[in-house]
Design a protein around this nucleic acid. Structure first.
Lengths: 203, 203
DNA sequence: CTACAATCGGATAGGCGACTCCGGTTCCGA
DNA sequence: TCGGAACCGGAGTCGCCTATCCGATTGTAG
């Protein structure tokens, strides 16, 4: 009552050294475990894999849902960074497709997170608004560049682009172990993105 | 004993009238509930909705997994029938796309079943082999007809076709409530299926 | 109609996973 | 070095869900 010095604005936590290390490792391990065993993996499994007690997990993340959320946000943030990097390194005509390939390569996983959160009743868009907004901005920039370069159908907008990304992830998940089929499936999507409804085809 | 006209080859069950009705209603209700609440819906929920005791559910389907399987098989069977019908009614050049639209329209649901079964460790291909084989045959026929008609890229094969179907379901799930975006997403996939890698574009 | 037998359905076990309690340990300031 | 406080960890609790048992009910044959 007397001393209520709670610096809990949101980031002001002078977390102790070991606590900080454990938190980092938890995120790391959770990402790996969720990727391998699926999002249904138990909290105990993660704790064991991270070599901490189960209480430590719940101390850092009050619910399992919060842990999933944190992992997802981290992944989205990293994707945003990679997207910005690609926007500079690759040309406007290639950056979008390069980003697409990048996402498809490293995330048969991210998909499952979004699905699990949605099942849990979480509004994914709200939960990941910070990282999500940044990622959306990057995607919008990549899309507009590609459209100006004339390599993507001009009527395409952001919502369907993200949906196509997610859906294509699922496609490739389904084709795990069939690389030739996966290659052709990617080609289908890529060509669909290129071919305009009546617009000229780039290739 | 006199009239033992059992039509079933392997499941010789002269099921009683009420039992048969309950079984049918259970399948019906289970399909609806799984569609609405997701495949995580509890067995009790289904029993209540179907107005039967929980024991009745487990009497007809020894595990929850078996129930999911039965519902999925039913759906696949119906899809197979519709596919055969379309193959006759629509021309070879349109049947595949018509079937695609049909599946996409009525199954933001089927997807979840397959995912749930996969999570449960069930080999979906084995579990649904009967209905699955029939459906695969239909799809193959539709695909070959369309390729002969020259409206689908000739390098496309069955595995990626099914994967594209599943992935596109997911896309549209993600675009629920955005009909314009959904329309464009469908157009992207359709154009991708048409445009060959170097082959002439139909439209 | 009567009796038999199969089915029904609520109550009940058994297990699994998310989430807290309390003693022991580790970090940080004086 | 030493004291205190924050953190750690495993045992334990609670609730949910799948799956089973037995009395009540209902369909079917003669």
């Amino acid at each position: 009552m007397t001393s209520d010095q709670i610096p809990s604005v949101e980031g002001a936590k002078p977390l102790r050294a070991d606590a900080r290390r454990n938190r980092a490792r938890l995120l790391e391990v959770a990402e790996a475990v969720f990727a391998e065993r699926g999002t249904g993996a138990s909290t105990e499994e993660i704790a064991r894999e991270a070599k901490v007690g189960i209480a430590t997990v719940f101390r850092h993340f009050p619910t399992k849902e919060a842990l999933l959320e944190a992992v997802l946000v981290r992944r989205l943030e990293r994707l945003g960074e990679e997207g910005r990097r690609l926007a500079v390194e690759a040309g406007p005509a290639d950056a979008l497709f390069a980003f697409f390939d990048l996402v498809l390569d490293q995330s048969p996983v991210k998909n499952a997170f979004a699905a699990a959160l949605a099942d849990a009743g979480v509004d994914v868009r709200a939960a990941t608004s910070e990282a999500g907004r940044a990622l959306r901005e990057v995607l919008t920039a990549l899309l507009e560049d590609a459209q100006r370069a004339g390599v993507v159908r001009p009527d395409l907008e952001l919502p369907e682009l993200t949906a196509i990304l997610v859906g294509t992830c699922r496609m490739l998940e389904h084709l795990d172990g069939h690389p030739e089929s996966a290659k052709r499936a990617r080609a289908v999507v890529r060509d669909g993105l290129k071919a305009g409804a009546g617009a000229g085809v780039g290739v």
